[in-house]
């Protein structure tokens, strides 16, 4: 059974319902694709960044007041030596004084002042990927040779960052869910409007012996066709805007570390949105017609 393809087309066109339908699907797909791409990018970058930061820690060797009694260089050398000897440590390297000064400059805004301050020496340590040794255990070992050494595993502030990432991710998820919900409501209302406009045609189809499911199927196909075009446009626009934003913020968020599989994953996550939107539009059209058509003679 195949009803004429353009049976309800005039109502979708002439009463601007089709354009409203297409615009709503397009905008919803744009928002959801953009949110999904942003969320997926955020989670991927956070994950990669977390993988790096979680294996790194910093050992601080405070500056000593009496350099002659216990030279700082000797303390750093002893500390570095004992750290490198710890099983599970893959890398330990003292940072140059210039590097420490460069890190602190933004906080003091006066490089001359920094030169007069007793700055600590920082040792950059990287644990092996499968190492189980903790920051506390490293600190215990280091303090055997430098009693006032302190180990910072970035735990405190990375937890805050993770909370922020989770919060942003939740906002993205809620945005996508709300977008889907709005799409369902909009498609339902538009289908109801088209059905009201096509009341006589539907009543005639009934009298000719058309099943409700066939009429609903026809609406579903119409919704799919419109949604496919609109979702494609919305998706491409979202990709373009996301690409432009990533390019514009490349100095902030360096995505060069992403591998091809990550990009494929990001693309798949974003592509999932228009596919879902087409499915939601088609299913909503079918269900709303089946529900409303029961009131027809």
């Amino acid at each position: 059974m195949a009803l004429p393809r353009h049976l309800f087309t005039p109502s979708f066109r002439q009463q601007h319902l089709g354009r409203s339908f297409a615009a709503i699907v397009g905008i919803m797909v744009f928002i959801a694709s953009f949110a999904t791409a942003a969320e997926a990018a955020l989670l991927t970058v956070s994950y990669l960044w977390g993988q790096t930061i979680e294996t790194r820690l910093t050992v601080e060797i405070p500056a000593v007041g009496d350099e002659a009694a216990q030279p700082q260089a000797e303390r750093v050398k002893q500390a570095t030596g004992i750290i490198r000897a710890i099983p599970g440590v893959g890398f330990a390297m003292p940072m140059a004084d210039d590097e420490v000064t460069r890190l602190l400059e933004p906080w003091f805004n006066d490089s001359d002042l920094l030169k007069t301050l007793p700055l600590p020496t920082l040792i950059d340590v990287e644990r092996k990927q499968d190492a189980t040794i903790t920051a506390d255990q490293i600190q215990t070992e280091v303090r055997k040779v430098v009693s006032d050494a302190h180990v910072d595993d970035h735990g405190a502030w990375t937890q805050d960052v993770w909370r922020l990432v989770r919060g942003l991710s939740m906002i993205g998820g809620v945005t996508i869910a709300l977008t889907g919900f709005t799409l369902i409501i909009a498609v339902t209302l538009i289908c109801r409007a088209v059905m009201a406009a096509e009341h006589e045609t539907i009543a005639l189809l009934h009298l000719l012996g058309t099943d409700d499911r066939d009429i609903a199927h026809h609406f579903q196909l119409q919704a799919e066709r419109i949604a496919l075009r609109a979702a494609s446009i919305g998706f491409l626009c979202a990709l373009a805007v996301t690409g432009a934003l990533l390019y514009a913020t490349r100095h902030i968020a360096d995505l060069s570390t992403l591998e091809i599989r990550h990009w494929v994953g990001l693309g798949a996550a974003a592509f999932f949105v228009p596919v879902c939107a087409i499915g939601i539009a088609a299913l909503t059209a079918r269900l709303s017609v089946l529900r409303m058509i029961k009131s027809f003679p």
């Binding site: 059974m1 009803l3 004429p4 049976l7 087309t9 006589e200 005639l204 009298l207 000719l208 012996g209």
Partner: peptide, 26 residues
């Protein structure tokens, strides 16, 4: 059924209107 007011679908051509019931068959 031949309706008093014909009930032809205005945006379908004459043969499309006439063929409509056949489309409900296989």
């Amino acid at each position: 059924i031949v309706f008093q007011d014909f009930r032809l679908i205005p945006h379908l051509t004459a043969w499309e209107n006439a063929a409509l019931p056949l489309r409900l068959t296989s």
